[in-house]
């Protein structure tokens, strides 16, 4: 996993609440069996007309937000389906982080497994960043995971909360599975006491 330490980038505002993962990546693109190539389908129904042509009026398609790597969005971002394809699509499109006042649990979990940061700020702070991203040309933010801080060049600076362990994994790009397998002895001893139910152990076709 790619480590996340400090990232500075262009900010795009998505002024909607309850952005669900069906919007982030519509179902017709979930049939790929790879982890890559989902960025082109990000927010597809909002960005493209039914005939596949770009509708051009979606915020991410405004020339001033081209190359944005930080998304600021309304509350409950990533709700709905557990599809990790939503995170893959955001990351593949070029985003490294989303800032919101709340995230759906599964989306937030999926993000950390991909070196993708969900930054939790207060609703008024999110509103302020959204305003600046609209009003300030080439509005850049720095997200500093070592200091747990978000700051801009216009004097905005605030801390954000994050679980210590999640932060540690993100900073170091650690492989979760490897960490769990460090506890092989404990897992094995748990399994000795709790074997699979006998009905499931029987051979199956």
């Amino acid at each position: 996993m790619k480590p996340f330490r400090t990232h500075r980038g262009l900010v795009a505002p998505l002024d909607r609440i309850n952005v669900d993962t069906d919007q982030i990546i519509p179902k017709q693109f979930l049939k790929r069996i790879e982890r890559t190539g989902f960025g082109q389908f990000l927010f597809y129904d909002w960005r493209f007309a039914a005939d596949g042509k770009k509708s051009g009026d979606f915020i991410l398609d405004e020339p001033r937000y081209a190359g944005a790597s930080i998304l600021v969005a309304g509350k409950n971002f990533g709700c709905g389906s557990s599809r990790e394809h939503a995170v893959w699509a955001l990351a593949d499109f070029g985003f490294r982080a989303v800032i919101s006042s709340s995230f759906a649990d599964i989306f937030a979990n999926n993000s950390t497994k991909n070196g993708f940061l969900t930054v939790l700020l207060r609703e008024d702070e999110v509103g302020e960043l959204m305003r600046r991203a609209r009003e300030v040309n080439d509005y850049q933010l720095t997200i500093d995971l070592e200091q747990c801080e978000v700051r801009d060049d216009q004097g905005f600076c605030t801390k954000f909360p994050i679980d210590d362990f999640v932060r540690h994994c993100l900073l170091n790009g650690l492989d979760d599975i490897g960490l769990t397998l460090q506890h092989e002895a404990e897992i094995a001893s748990y399994e000795t006491v709790h074997p699979p139910p006998s009905a499931l152990q029987a051979r199956h076709p």
Binding site: S82, R83, E84, H85, V87, I106, N110, I177, T180, I187
Partner: peptide, 11 residues
Amino acid sequence: GTSEVEHVLAT
């Protein structure tokens, strides 16, 4: 999510 699916398959 899928990363956790892999995690459970493996561990």
